[in-house]
Simulated scan of single mutants.
Amino acid sequence: MNFKKMKLYVKYMVSLRCKMLVKEELKNLGLHHTSVELGVVEIMEDLSNEQRAKLKAALLESGLELMDDKKAMLIEKIKIVITEMIHYNDELPKVNYSEYISKMMDYDYTYLANIFSEVKGVTIEHYIIAHKIEKVKELLLYDELNLTEISYRMNYSSVSHLSTQFKKVTGLTPTFFKNLKDKKRINLDDV
């Protein structure tokens, strides 16, 4: 049997729980997936208009969104690359982030950066910084690494650079944040 694979792009899909929800909805519609990754789903069938509408409605109920617009799909792919790079790797790439994103996306970085800024109203660099700070918060909460180790792991040039960026984004020093009783983290969907 020769299967044709179809790719679907799902917005706000940033966790294992999201992947499980998508798999469940595909199963409910009798659709077979070959892979379900953050933001990208490969299925073995072509979707009928009715199936697409049902999947879109079911995903919306779970806070996810099936995407159609080409620019929106490109933006979502960029966000997935950044999210995976920062939150799901043990170490950040040692190359320049623009080179990494360009290589992973197989597009010219300037093109990606322009579309991202146009659609999101924020630069890719600021988006990366916001995600890095959320990862730093997570690492501070785990309390397994000291600030020097976190700084090194997150590719900051120094603890001072990390602290300055952390304070600029959160208004707090990393040490003050770590000592707060009610620590505030932002949902990855909202970064």
Rank of each mutant, 00 (worst) to 15 (best):
Y100K: 00
Y100W: 06
I101E: 00
I101R: 00
I101S: 00
S102P: 05
S102A: 13
K103F: 14
K103S: 14
K103P: 01
K103Q: 11
K103E: 11
M104L: 15
M104F: 02
M104R: 15
M105D: 04
M105S: 01
D106Q: 13
Y107F: 15
Y107R: 12
Y109Q: 02
T110Q: 10
T110E: 12
T110S: 12
Y111L: 13
Y111D: 06
L112T: 01
L112R: 00
L112F: 01
L112H: 01
L112I: 03
L112C: 01
A113R: 10
A113H: 14
A113N: 13
A113F: 06
N114H: 11
N114W: 06
N114S: 11
N114T: 13
I115C: 06
I115W: 03
I115E: 04
I115F: 02
F116K: 03
F116W: 02
F116N: 02
S117C: 10
S117Y: 13
S117Q: 13
S117V: 10
E118Y: 09
E118T: 13
V119T: 13
K120A: 12
K120W: 10
G121C: 06
G121E: 07
G121S: 02
V122Y: 09
V122N: 04
V122S: 09
V122C: 12
V122D: 09
T123P: 12
T123W: 09
T123F: 10
I124L: 08
E125F: 14
H126P: 03
H126K: 07
Y127D: 08
Y127N: 06
I128G: 07
I128E: 12
I129Q: 11
I129S: 10
I129W: 10
I129R: 10
A130T: 04
A130H: 04
H131F: 10
H131L: 15
H131M: 14
K132H: 08
K132L: 15
K132S: 05
K132A: 12
I133H: 03
I133S: 03
I133C: 10
I133G: 02
I133E: 01
I133L: 09
E134F: 11
E134Q: 14
E134V: 07
E134G: 03
K135G: 02
K135P: 04
K135F: 06
V136F: 11
V136S: 08
V136D: 03
V136P: 01
